[in-house]
Design a protein around this nucleic acid. Structure first.
Lengths: 159, 159
DNA sequence: AAGTACTTGACTATTTTAGTAGGGTATTAG
DNA sequence: CTAATACCCTACTAAAATAGTCAAGTACTT
């Protein structure tokens, strides 16, 4: 399988959404600040997430993205699949033509590994992550950091 | 984690070694032919495998590589670690400085995933793989293909 | 009406991967 | 002894993937 910052950022962004979208939709700019992820890069990821039907968007002032459905229905595997194509671990993409049209010596091993990972990531929902204490601690820290940052900016402008 | 052909080739080569090193050491050229992997590329992988102490080498005619220890003592995780650095899935390499010195929102998730994969791959030894029926079937096919190939070459030369 | 925020597509620098090339050096069969 | 065999090592390179930028839109709401 292919786990890059692309997939990691997507899960992080979705978790941010789950943590902050109680009342209003969350703008990409907010997520970009809180999670320190490039804004334009996030936009690309959300385009994929929207295509996959995991989020929907509200345009105009006060708009942003919202999760489709409740947090217990969206699992980590879905998010990674949405932006990363597949969790497959074989070289041949599961087709089994790894060695000149036939199966290679280790094909089934990688196939098993893929299933294992998929099973693990399918068993974890956004609700599970939100419920974790460390996630909440980190989320609070991120909000605090942002507030003091804005505070400093206001003071800087006042000078 | 980072699973590329590098790691896959290494496991395939080690399995080939396990299957064919009953009497003599196995040369890289043999493995290259049987598994259709570039010879020079294989040599690089074996340099890493040797450094990790998974194989030792016999030089000169009739030489080649041999496994160090029995097949039940070498697991897939060891082989991948030997050529691929780590099975870690976090972006920060497990250091926990993913977001400006602090931990990022999803760090622990990737950490858990890494442990999961490491556990799975540590539980599979070369002996386990050799014992599988499909592996033996594929190995036989590979030997047959090579024999008919050599046969054709001999005939071609005779013409 | 105007600003906010999403949408789209093209473009680029960097890194990693996979593989090549070409020179060695040690060993041993004959 | 010597020539063939097979390991050993370093540097290089083409291609792909990744991460991110830039710019010009369009839709919507206050």
């Amino acid at each position: 399988m292919r786990l890059t910052t692309r997939g990691r950022y997507a899960v992080t962004a979705m978790l941010d959404l789950a943590l902050h979208s109680e009342k209003r939709p969350v703008s990409v700019a907010e997520i970009s600040e809180r999670q320190t992820i490039s804004l334009s890069y996030l936009e690309q990821l959300f385009a994929s997430l929207r295509k996959a039907g995991l989020v929907d968007s509200v345009r105009g002032p006060g708009g942003g993205y919202r999760l489709v459905g409740t947090t217990d229905l969206i699992c980590v595997a879905d998010i990674i699949k949405a932006v990363n194509e597949s969790i497959d671990s074989t070289n041949c993409g599961g087709k089994g033509d790894c060695q000149g049209g036939s199966i290679c010596l280790t094909h089934n091993l990688w196939d098993d590994l893929g299933r294992q990972i998929a099973g693990f990531l399918s068993g974890i929902s956004l609700a599970d992550l939100v419920a974790k204490r460390d996630v909440q601690t980190i989320a609070n820290r991120q909000v605090d950091q942002l507030l003091t940052l804005e505070d400093n900016n206001v003071r800087a402008k006042a000078c």
